[in-house]
Amino acid sequence: MGEYCERCEEVMQPFLDRQLTSEEQGTAEAHLSECAYCNARYTFENELRVLVKKACNEEMSPELKAKLASLKETQA
């Protein structure tokens, strides 16, 4: 583990959310390009976010959809 790794862990979320200042972003990017340890963990976090979103992609039933449409005040 390198000197910056601990800091890199701390800034992971704001980094991925693009909330860091450009200077901090640059420092983290430089570190990530040469640190396999942190790079793997950032890659993992990205994949995890996609997976969480996919896992929660539950569709509503057609019955509910029909019910909602029937709630309209104007019946065309």
Binding site: C56, N57, E58, E59, M60, L64, K65, L68, A69, K72
Partner: peptide, 12 residues
Amino acid sequence: LELADQVYRVAR
């Protein structure tokens, strides 16, 4: 109504 799927997903 077009937004219903997205609203449901969050509600769920």
